[in-house]
Design a protein around this nucleic acid. Structure first.
Lengths: 207, 207
DNA sequence: TAGCGTGTTGAGCAGCCGCTCAATACGAAA
DNA sequence: TTTCGTATTGAGCGGCTGCTCAACACGCTA
C-alpha cells in the first residue's frame, strides 16, 4: 500500500484549483443540468471540502453563469468547425440543421432550458444567456448572408430569419426532451421549412 | 373589535378546500412560476397550516402537474375562443400568431419552460406536458386542415407543420423572457414565415 | 346538552441549500 | 531545520424543502 491509503491529498495552485472547480461544475451540468450544480456536489466530485469551493467561487450564481457560457460557447465552436467542413452555404446550412436536430444534444438543450428558467432570478446568468444568444444569432446571420452572396438564399432580413431558424430548432429540441420521439424525425421537415424561410430552391437543403 | 381579532377561521368542506388549494397554487404559478409552488407558500396564501395542504395533496409533484394542466388548458381554451371570433382560416391563423406573440403571455411561457425543466424529474408533470402538447398540436392541425379545405393553405403534412409553428412560437417567446425586446416585434416576421410554411399567398396572414 | 365526526393545527424530522470562519497542514523559502 | 504563506479543512449557522402525526376545535346529530 502507498504511504497514505486514506487520502492521496493533492495540493493545487490557485489557478489549477480554480480551473478544476469550473471543470467539475461543467461536468455536473452536462450530466444533470445547471440546477444540479451545488457546493457539495462539486466538492464531492473533486473529493474536497465544500468550503474550498466557496473560497474560489464566492457566488454560486456567478459560477452557474460561467458554466453556462463555457458549455454553450464550446458547443457553438464545435458546431462552427463541423459546418466549416463544407463549402457552399446550402451544404453548411444543412449541416447545421442535421447536427442540431440529429440527437445526442439533449444535455445542452437541458442547459439552455434551465438557463431560461433560472435566468429570471440569476442576473449574471441572464446576461450570459443574452450574450450567448447574440453569438448564436451572429453565426447564423453570417451563414445566411453567405448564402445570399452566393445567390442561393433570398431573404430581406437575415437577422429576423436567423431568429426564426433558431427558435424552431430550440422549440423542437425542447419538445424532444419530453416526448418519446427524438427531433431526428424533424430533420427533413425542418430542411423543407428552412428552404422556404431562406428563399432557397426546393430540395437544396435536403439529403 | 370583533369577537376574534386574531383569526376569522373558516371551515370549508373537503371539496371546497381542495379547490381553494389548487386555485392558490395556480395563482402562485402564474405569479412566480411552477418552482414557487411549495407547501408553505400555498398555506401562507390561504392563511392555513401547512399540514392541511399535505392532507389534501399528498404529493407535491402531483399538485404541480395538476396546476400545469389547469393553467395551460385554460390558456388553450381562451385562445380557441379568441380565434373562433374569426371566420376564415387565414384570419384565424393570424389571430393565433398575434395573440401568442403579442406580449402579456410571459407568465404562461414561464410555466411551459419550467415544466420542460422540472418534467425531467417529475413523472406526473412529464405526462402532463405530453398530454397538453398533444392538445395544442391537435388544435393547430385542425386550423391548418381547415385552411387546406378552404384552399388557402397548401401543406403536405399538417402535423409536421403544426409542430414547426408551435416550435417557432415557443422559441421566440422563450427568448423574449430573457431579452429586453418582446416578441411583439416578430409578429410581422412570423406571419411571413407562416405564409411560406403554410403555402399561403404572400400577405394573406399580414396586418 | 352531550357526543362524535372531521376539518384543521403546528411543532417537529430529515434532508437539502449557500455560506462562514477559525483551525490546520502542507510546501517552498530562509 | 525552522519559518511563513497559503491551500485546505469541516463543523456549524440559518433558511428552505416535503412530509408526519398526535392533538385540537368546530358543527352537526342524537
Amino acid at each position: 500500500m502507498s504511504p497514505q491509503t486514506t487520502r492521496p491529498r493533492v495540493r493545487l495552485s490557485a489557478e489549477e484549483r480554480g480551473l478544476a472547480i469550473v471543470d467539475a461544475a461543467c461536468a455536473i451540468a452536462r450530466e444533470h443540468g445547471l440546477s444540479a450544480i451545488t457546493l457539495r456536489a462539486i466538492a464531492g466530485r473533486l473529493d474536497v471540502a465544500s468550503g474550498l469551493i466557496t473560497h474560489y467561487e464566492p457566488s454560486m450564481d456567478g459560477l452557474i453563469a460561467r458554466v453556462f457560457r463555457q458549455i454553450v460557447s464550446a458547443e457553438l465552436l464545435e458546431l462552427q468547425e463541423e459546418v466549416a467542413r463544407f463549402r457552399s452555404a446550402s451544404e453548411r446550412m444543412r449541416a447545421l440543421i442535421v447536427t442540431l436536430l440529429g440527437g445526442g444534444r439533449e444535455s445542452v438543450t437541458v442547459v439552455w432550458i434551465e438557463a431560461y428558467a433560472l435566468g429570471r432570478r440569476n442576473v449574471a446568468l441572464r446576461k450570459a444567456v443574452q450574450a450567448e444568444s447574440r453569438a448564436w444569432s451572429r453565426f447564423v446571420v453570417e451563414l445566411i448572408q453567405a448564402g445570399v452572396a452566393e445567390g442561393v438564399f433570398h431573404v430581406a432580413d437575415p437577422a429576423a430569419t436567423a431568429w426564426q431558424l433558431i427558435g424552431m430548432i430550440d422549440g423542437l429540441n425542447a419538445q424532444a426532451l419530453v416526448r418519446e420521439s427524438d427531433a431526428l424525425a424533424y430533420v427533413a421537415q425542418m430542411a423543407r421549412a428552412s428552404e422556404t424561410l431562406l428563399g432557397a430552391t426546393s430540395g437544396s437543403l435536403a439529403g
